[in-house]
């Protein structure tokens, strides 16, 4: 198994190189440049050309790509044209914000979604099950940004229970003060995100449990006199969780993706907004770095999912 994992990791290297060339070319093929649209009529176009030149944007693409690769091996992803600071620093700052929010939201999603889904499946057609189904239909049909705006309005502004903008209070004391402030700031967007995302898990799990309840091995267990509670605990729940486990790897590596809606409405500077603004501003260095990072994480997610599946299901082996 270790050999396989190592081989899979090595395969990622050429994939990343291919992805980097593709991203580099596609980014350059987009119309415009980092200075388009921010023109100052008092400035001369000659000055804009000057800025393009000193930033190497008039070099042939292969030269630009080569420069980028050389810098990459020195741990330098270049300077952002928009932010005028090293890409690693901006991505680092945003990644930390995104991780705080995403980890909390993901933990809450699974912590609430798993028991609710299992409960709904086990008590099919009960009143609670109907209520849960209505909830999932509502959340499936309401756009996410509406949930965010409503949640912010009710719990942030009307009831005043949570901070409404940003990732930390401007005047938070250093140390524990800033940790507490950060936690306060992620609770509302994190919970809203969790209550919205758990719909899929609940529905999936509910139907898995219902299917498993009618399967042969459950019938056999029941006929052997195994108590219902044990059948659910040891047979049905474990098997029903397998499809959810299959996506766990993606969920872990997807933590850095960020959410544009949440970040915009809560003015929370994270990876989602960084990616969108990098595309709008043609901030090539940031675009390339982020796509590569997301690509790498995606490949890693696939591998992780396979490993997790193998760990939880004895029938599966990575060969």
């Amino acid at each position: 198994m270790w050999k396989t994992i190592l081989r899979r990791l090595l395969i990622i290297i050429p994939e990343i190189i291919a992805l980097s060339i593709l991203v580099f070319l596609l980014a350059k093929a987009m119309p415009g440049d980092p200075f388009t649209g921010s023109i100052n009529p008092h400035a001369s176009l000659a000055h804009i050309h000057h800025l393009m030149r000193i930033n190497g944007l008039y070099d042939p693409w292969y030269q630009q790509y080569w420069n980028w690769v050389v810098h990459l091996f020195h741990g330098n992803l270049g300077m952002s044209y928009e932010y005028q600071e090293p890409v690693t620093r901006i991505v680092g700052e945003r990644a930390i914000n995104t991780l705080w929010l995403a980890v909390f939201a993901t933990v809450m999603t699974y912590a609430i979604g798993l028991p609710v889904g299992l409960y709904a499946g086990r008590h099919q057609n009960s009143r609670s099950d109907h209520a849960i189904r209505i909830y999932t239909y509502v959340t499936l049909s309401v756009p996410f940004f509406v949930v965010l705006v409503l949640g912010l309005w009710i719990f942030g502004y009307m009831l005043g229970w949570f901070p409404t903008t940003g990732s930390i209070n401007t005047n938070a004391a250093p140390g524990m003060g800033s940790v507490i402030s950060r936690i306060q700031h992620i609770v509302l967007p994190g919970l809203l995100q969790a209550f919205f995302s758990l719909t899929g898990i609940v529905q999936y799990l509910r139907s898995e449990v219902i299917d498993a309840t009618h399967s042969d091995y459950v019938r056999t267990a029941r006929s052997k006199g195994v108590p219902v509670r044990d059948v659910f605990r040891h047979h049905i729940f474990r098997n029903s969780l397998l499809p959810i486990t299959a996506t766990a790897g993606y969920a872990i590596t997807g933590l850095l993706g960020g959410s544009v809606f949440t970040e915009t409405i809560f003015s929370y500077p994270g990876m989602g907004l960084l990616f969108v603004s990098a595309i709008n501003y043609r901030d090539y260095t940031v675009i390339t770095a982020l796509v590569l990072l997301f690509g790498f994480l995606n490949m890693l997610g696939t591998l992780l999912s396979d490993i997790i599946m193998a760990a939880v299901d004895p029938r599966i082996r990575i060969e």
Partner: peptide
Amino acid sequence: TVQVVSTSAIEQALKSHK
């Protein structure tokens, strides 16, 4: 203090007199 507030939240922020 200057705080970034999104266009979708500014109306409520003002209604809350923040």
